[in-house]
């Protein structure tokens, strides 16, 4: 499938480059609807591979790449289930998103995240599955999960650890702070800095350079240099499920979701 338009995203193939655009109001939250369409996207890789050198993941929203996992949906689903079954429901969702992100991580073509605006939690985990992150000067990155009592669950810790090292993971994780694009570039999270609103243009320019190279060599080099941290990813799912279903987390999430102030509740 060379092009697709769904409810939460769309993709289009053009001259060896496939562009996946997240387009889900209000903030490109990654919930079951987006995961189902991401599953369609990765299922199309087999057909795309022979004619594709690069995939760009971008957002239709001017100020948001993705605010992350759909916490409202996760919370409502968890609280609707009997307490003993909450973990199983969350685990099923995590298994699906991990499968999708592992496919993107190991895609046999180069993947570029073109980030503008907020890139938080699950949104950052999606960007981290890509090979290269291009971000504009207004981009901000964060793993705010610990502020609500759980950890990133879409593979963020193992991938950030793989790409940048443990000290950066600890700073972002233990403070939950948002990090600007300049800092993200300085620590190596962002490969290329773009002017305001120019991330997609720079990503396309990068893609057109990459398409000049031999695709087989590129895929081999990627496989060689970018191992999937399988064991840590499995452990992350277990830990997330263990932490997420605690009553304290449910209470913090409830407070966060019900807060209608200009700055939502975040300890």
């Amino acid at each position: 499938m060379k092009s697709f338009t769904g409810k939460t995203l769309r993709w289009e193939w053009r001259e060896r480059v496939v562009e996946l655009t997240l387009d889900h109001e209000p903030a490109n939250e990654i919930g079951t609807a987006m995961v189902a369409e991401l599953e369609k996207f990765v299922a199309s890789f087999g057909a795309l591979v022979p004619e594709t050198s690069v995939c760009i993941i971008t957002s239709a929203r001017k100020s948001i790449f993705s605010a992350g996992g759909d916490l409202r949906e996760l919370y409502h689903r968890a609280t609707a289930a009997p307490e003993k079954e909450r973990g199983a429901g969350v685990r099923e969702f995590l298994e699906r998103i991990h499968t999708v992100l592992n496919c993107i991580d190991a895609a046999p073509f180069v993947t570029i995240a073109a980030v503008q605006g907020l890139c938080f939690g699950g949104g950052l985990e999606l960007a981290l599955a890509c090979d290269i992150i291009v971000a504009d000067k207004m981009a901000r990155f964060a793993f705010p999960e610990l502020r609500l009592g759980f950890i990133p669950g879409f593979g963020g810790i193992p991938r950030l650890n793989r790409d940048l090292g443990n000290a950066v993971v600890r700073d972002m994780l233990f403070t939950g702070r948002t990090v600007n694009a300049t800092r993200a570039h300085a620590v190596g999270l962002v490969a290329q800095l773009a002017g305001e609103g120019q991330a997609l243009r720079i990503a396309r320019s990068t893609a057109s350079q990459i398409t000049k190279f031999d695709a087989v060599t590129q895929a081999a080099a990627k496989k060689f240099i970018k191992p999937i941290p399988d064991e840590e990813l499995r452990r992350e799912i277990d830990l997330f499920c263990e932490l997420f279903t605690r009553p304290d987390v449910m209470a913090a999430l409830k407070k966060f979701l019900e807060d209608s102030g200009p700055m939502p509740y975040l300890p």
Binding site: L118, A139, P262
Partner: peptide
């Protein structure tokens, strides 16, 4: 709102 506040924060930091 919170999004505009973070945008402002980015502008100030830059």
């Amino acid at each position: 709102d919170s999004l505009q506040t973070l945008e402002m924060l980015s502008r100030l930091e830059n």
